[in-house]
Design a protein around this nucleic acid. Structure first.
Length: 427
RNA sequence: GGUGGGAUGGCUGAGUGGUUGAAAGCGGCAGUCUUGAAAACUGUUGUGGAGGGUAACCUCCACCGUGAGUUCGAAUCUCACUCCCACCGCCA
């Protein structure tokens, strides 16, 4: 959520941001917010003036009654003012939820360093490693997995629906190894504290991080309880601290959380329907940071570096993309994607998304800290990034480490997590 | 699922219609004392908003779980909702 006062005083900046995001349809909403706000403040001025009168008169009535004097006349005249107060309060009461509703639909303002334009304006910031040159015909992870019997696509459909998967045998073991490897790395080497959060959260939490109200149709929802299956651990971990004031000395607060992630992927039917690319449930280790505003862009770079370390240790070639204004998410000011190369599919796969939300989420979720120097409360900046998302990383491992005989070598760093095994093969 | 109790400031906790933004204690901050610290003592200590001022700041309004209602006036009365706690039942 943007600060209302900021919108009021910086319409140009907000409009420019919407243009850069290609959300032109929201510009009239911004103007509506500004005019409603003007109207509201006008009403508020009169209302507060009347309430001041009323408070004063009430004190006098109280004093008269205490002295057992007659206050009838005063009470009668107050009835008039009170009824006017009621009327004005109704006006405010009608405007407020409408304004809040509109405010919640305005996306964050992209940082000045974000490339302006369509998704193809995103810039490759750097690449690491070389796409492997296999001297045989690379198979896709689908063929590899089926030949090795480590992922069962068809039975998952039987018990759930299409685009769910069952990991089996060494496939399940690989998944579990990756989770543990990533958590161990972030908690012991990168200074994150581990969190294992609930997978169901309430509407307030979903609104706090910005998934709601916009993306409700993308979420799995338990309508009897008004709870949602989390699309990412970002939601529970960020909202852990909603309505809290964090200790300045404790910042930055850094958490790493494994969770399953659930996405309906409504509207993406027909895209990436095969294999592990786009599934309704996948595992992910997420990194979340709460930081002082002046440090957030440095922390953002560190966050990306932490995610990159995962891919480097796994030996997966990848590239870092600075997303453009039309590609960054609703709540983000800036975002880097990490894409790992998958030789079987012959394409780059997004395995991590690292964003700086500045105060956008903190304002929604009301997460602050008190600055010792000024003794004032300020919103923290929040950041998060995948470190990294399992399913697609598994694709990259299978396809990059495949051997001509159809087996898959296990990356060195994972072997301690897999009984020291060197490869996944038939038998 | 059943029954009861509760929700007040950073925390504990008082307060049942009129100087209550809210007692008291703890904590925090500043000071006195001390070589330093502790103790003791003194002072201070909520948030959001509107308006005014270059600013330090000033004035006003709102906020005692949330929302509505009664009233000239609500932390206090009424209703609805949410959440929490305890016990019982069920259960990984």
């Amino acid at each position: 959520m943007l600060d209302l006062k900021f919108i009021r005083e910086n319409r140009d900046v907000v409009v420019k941001a919407l243009e850069n995001r290609n959300h032109l349809s929201l510009i009239p909403i911004v103007d509506q917010i500004i005019s409603d706000d003007n109207n509201r403040r006008k009403v508020l001025l009169e209302l507060e003036e009347l309430r001041a009168q009323r408070n004063k008169a009430n004190d006098e009535i109280g004093a008269l009654l205490r002295e057992k004097k007659d206050a009838k006349e005063k009470i009668t005249s107050m009835k008039v003012i009170s009824s006017r107060v009621d009327t004005l309060e109704d006006v405010i009461r009608d405007i407020d939820p409408v304004m809040t509703g509109m405010l919640l639909t305005i996306p964050n303002i992209p940082h000045s360093s974000v490339p302006v334009g369509a998704p193809d304006k995103g810039q490759v910031v750097r690449t690491w490693g070389e796409p492997k040159n296999l001297n045989f015909k690379a198979l896709t992870h689908i063929d590899l997995a089926q030949n090795l019997d480590i992922v069962d696509f068809t039975r998952a459909t039987k018990i759930a629906m299409s685009n769910f998967v069952i990991f089996k045998g060494m496939g399940a073991r690989l998944e579990r190894a990756l989770i543990n490897f990533m958590l161990d790395l972030h908690t012991t080497k990168h200074g994150y504290t581990e969190i294992l959060p609930p997978y169901l959260v309430n509407r307030k939490a979903m609104t706090g991080t910005g998934q709601l109200p916009k993306l409700e149709e993308d979420m799995y929802k338990l309508k009897d309880d008004d709870l949602f299956l989390i699309p990412t651990a970002e939601v529970p971990v960020t909202n852990m601290y909603d309505d809290e004031i964090l200790d300045e000395d404790a910042l930055p607060v850094c958490h790493a959380a494994y969770s399953a992630c659930f996405r309906r992927e409504a509207g993406s039917y027909g895209k990436d329907t095969k294999g592990l690319i786009r599934v309704h449930q996948f595992d992910k280790v997420e990194m979340v940071k709460f930081v002082k505003p002046e440090t957030s862009y440095d922390e953002h770079e560190k966050l990306v570096a932490n995610a990159e370390t995962v891919l480097q240790l796994l030996g997966l070639p990848y590239r870092v993309l600075a997303l453009s204004t039309q590609d960054i998410s609703f709540a983000a000011s800036k975002c880097y994607d990490l894409e790992a190369y998958a030789p079987g599919l012959d394409r780059w796969l997004e395995v991590s998304s690292c964003s700086n939300f500045e105060a956008f989420q903190a304002r929604r979720a009301n997460i602050k800290f008190r600055r010792k120097e000024t003794k004032k409360l300020e919103f923290v900046h929040t950041l998060n990034g995948s470190g990294v998302a399992m399913a697609r990383t598994v694709i990259a491992i299978m396809e990059n480490y495949q051997q001509e005989d159809g087996s898959i070598l296990i990356p060195d760093v994972l072997r301690p997590y897999m009984d020291g095994k060197e490869r996944i093969s038939k038998i």
